[in-house]
Simulated scan of single mutants.
Amino acid sequence: MSAAVVLFDARNDHTQAGACRIGEEDLGAFVKIPGGGFLKGADPHYPEEGPPDYVFVSPFRLLAHEVTNSEFAAFVAATGYVTEAERTGGSARFQDSATPEVFLSWWRLDPDASWQTPRGSGSTLEGLDLHPVVHVTLNDARAYADWAGGRLPTEVEWEYAASLGLFDPDDPFSGMRDANGEPRANVWTGMFPLVDSGQDGFAGLAPVGCYQPGLTGAYDMIGNVWEWTDSAFAPSSPQYTIKGGSYLCSDTYCRRYRAAAREDFEIDFSTGHIGFRIVQDLP
């Protein structure tokens, strides 16, 4: 991967689009993930993360960054695809709340929210070409992957790649920050859900590739947006697994900015903090 990524300078305000950029040669690039074994669910923090299990994974190629708005726009232009949020009544957006102690008050089902209007009515993608596409369901992500000549990763593949990328395998939080506490991912800094200080460079979503890539060369495996996998959350479960945490994960809330962290989600529903990346099988 190229080193031509401009990282943020914490002394400046980088909460606006365009504050950092990934090298053109890195957009759409894949990194090779070698086959091997690893401990899935290592150091579990929540009941749904365990028990740890040693598994083997075949090699594959992983998109180095989350699928961007510009990439998804190309898919829509080529195919005429209409996302489920656009067809079935909107998507969920995180919002300020007068009653932050009430979990559901943080979220609003916005009938006008979609991948093209991520902040609801009147919003556009202007300046957001390199942001990860959001408000996409598992079905939408699968459709894009088919068109792009790939597929969604399984949960095991995703966690394996994220684990290989850690700078310190003994520190499950090393994908989020270095040993000195400097940020390696876009998460929530400040008192959740009241104030996101942007101390890590961004309040809200960041463009892809703004942080140091992991040891595999893949960016943003931790934080920014949750990522769809093509694995059911549990046997016979209608819910599927999302991985990696998002900009809404914080020390005072979910702490799911770890490779082993996992959440379940409905396959036909979307939010403003879930995106995806794709993989390709090796010959």
Rank of each mutant, 00 (worst) to 15 (best):
A4S: 14
V6G: 13
L7W: 08
N12K: 15
D13P: 05
R21T: 13
K32F: 14
I33T: 02
G37F: 11
F38P: 00
P44T: 04
Y46K: 14
P47V: 12
P47Q: 09
E49V: 03
F56P: 06
L62V: 03
A73H: 08
V76C: 12
G80D: 09
Y81I: 05
T83I: 05
E86W: 12
T88R: 15
G89W: 14
D96F: 14
S97E: 06
P100K: 03
V102P: 04
L109C: 08
P111I: 07
S114D: 07
R119M: 14
S121K: 14
D129R: 11
L130R: 13
T137K: 08
D140P: 04
A143E: 09
A145C: 15
A145N: 08
W147N: 07
G150K: 00
T154N: 05
V156I: 15
E157A: 02
W158V: 04
G165R: 00
F167M: 12
F173L: 13
A179P: 03
R184H: 09
F202N: 12
A203N: 12
P207M: 10
A218P: 01
Y219A: 03
E227V: 02
S231I: 01
A232F: 10
F233W: 14
P238R: 13
S246M: 01
C249E: 10
Y253D: 14
R255I: 05
A259R: 02
R262M: 12
E266H: 13
T271Q: 06
T271A: 10
G272R: 01
G275K: 02
R277S: 09
D281Q: 11
